[in-house]
Every structure is written in C-alpha cells, then in structure tokens.
Simulated assay, not measured.
Amino acid sequence: MKPLLPPVFVNGVEIPAERIANEAQNHPAPKNKPGLAWQAAARALVLREVMLQEARARGLSPDPAEIAPGQFETGDEALIRQLCESAITPGAVTDAGLHDHYLAHPERFRAPSLYEAAHILFPREMDMAGPRARAQAVLVELRANPRRFAELARAHSACSSKENGGVLGQLSAGDTVPEFETALEALAEGQISDPVETRFGLHLIRLDARARGDVLPFEVVLPRLRDARAKAAWAQAAARFASDLLMKATIDGIRLRAA
C-alpha cells in the first residue's frame, strides 16, 4: 500500500512531507478533498526547488532586496528573483501590434457608460424568504402597472431615494456594487428588473436612460495597453521557462500536470 503522503524528490533532493503539509495551508481545496491542497502544495514546492537548483547551477549568489522598509527577501527568494531577471526574456511589445489589437476590439476601450435609474430596496435579513416574497409581490404590481414605480418605492423601499420615488440620478461605473451594475447593463431603457440580490438586500431596478461611452482614442489607452501586454508577455515567457525546467528535471513522488 502506498503511503498517504509519499516523499517527493526533485533531482534526488527530498521535499519532506511535513513541509508540503505546511505549504498546503496556502492552497484552498474543497473540505472533502484535502488531497488536492496537498498536491497543489507539492507542485509549488517542486517548481521552487527546480528554480533554486537552476539558480545555483548558474552560479548565482543571493543578493536580497529590500521589499519594505527594514524587510528583506530571504536568500531563496532572492535567488529565484535573480534567476527570473536573468533567464526570462519576454517577447517584444510593439505599438503597431497594440494598435492592431485596439482596432480589432474597439468595444473594450470605451469610456464608462452613464445610467439614469431608480430602484426599490428590500433590506437584507437573516432569513431572506421575507424580502424575496415582498419583492416578488411588488414586482407583480409593477408588471401590471409600471407607472406605479414611484408610489411603490415610497411605500416599500428601505433606501433614502424613496423620497424621490426611488430615483438614483446619474450613475457611472463604480457608483454601485457589481451586481447592481451588471443588472443595469443588461436592462433595456424603461425595463424593470427581476429582484437583484446584493449585500444590501434585494433591488427592483428600473433603467430610465443609458449613454454609452465613446471609444477612447488609441493614444489615451496606449499606456494601459503597453502595461497589460508587457505583463502578459512576461507571464507567458515565465511559464515557458518553468515548463522547460520541469521537463528536464527528474521528479519522483508526484505527477505534474502537462505543460
């Protein structure tokens, strides 16, 4: 019978089961599948060991950097960083390539949309059955007569906007919680939503108007594009480098996912 926690070796160097168990605390897994956390921890430590061995093989000596006032990297952290800096070469990012991407996906580069909306809020309770029943009952009345929205908001809403018939005024990206914003984006002008749940409770939302943001000029989004593409290029190069190291290593005690 195989042991529950078999030893793991990287080019003959053992990674103790106790160390893997400690690392597993940093890798969430379903309660009924703790083995998944152990496997993720073992893979992370295998990659770390492979990189440390490569750094030493290249003759690198740790030169810890200060990562916060008075706080420095460990020797192993410094070696891994130095290896990455010296060995990982991301692909070139050109403005011409970024411009092609911009032209191919203009909708991704719009300014935030503006909305005019109203809502009726049913506040969160320990048992949400009550708020859901009240919201559904009010929604039935609104479906029958949408013009009663202001009246029903004043009668039922837990938001101070009820004094104004539930009207929230002009809204932009970030003015509301994500669930509310997603519902606004999905509504047609004049439409009233089904109950939308947020951390505040349940909302019946009416979209009164939407102004789509214009596509931003390429020169405006270029710095953001450069930064995002540079990070993506580095991540891709790092993944290739790590995969190459793992393929060359002799690893026993765990099966690594295919690169």
Rank of each mutant, 00 (worst) to 15 (best):
K2V: 13
P3Y: 13
P7E: 14
V10Q: 09
E14F: 05
I15G: 02
P16H: 07
A17N: 06
H27N: 01
A40Q: 15
A44Y: 15
L45T: 09
M51R: 15
E54L: 03
G59T: 07
A65M: 11
F72T: 03
D76Y: 01
L79R: 00
I80T: 03
L83Y: 02
I88R: 01
I88D: 06
I88G: 04
P90S: 09
P90N: 05
D95A: 13
D95K: 09
A96P: 07
A104I: 02
A104F: 03
F109T: 01
R110D: 11
P112D: 07
S113V: 00
A118T: 05
A118F: 00
F122D: 04
F122S: 03
M128Y: 09
R134H: 08
A135R: 03
A137C: 01
L142R: 04
A144L: 11
N145C: 10
N145W: 06
P146F: 12
E151F: 05
H156F: 09
A158C: 05
G166Q: 07
G169A: 07
P178A: 11
P178W: 06
A183I: 03
L184W: 01
L187I: 01
A188L: 00
G190L: 00
I192H: 02
G201I: 05
L204V: 03
L204S: 05
I205R: 00
L216W: 06
F218I: 13
E219H: 08
A228E: 15
A233K: 03
Q236P: 00
F241I: 03
S243I: 02
S243T: 13
D244T: 14
M247H: 15
A249P: 14
I251M: 11
R255C: 07
L256S: 03
R257V: 05
A259F: 10
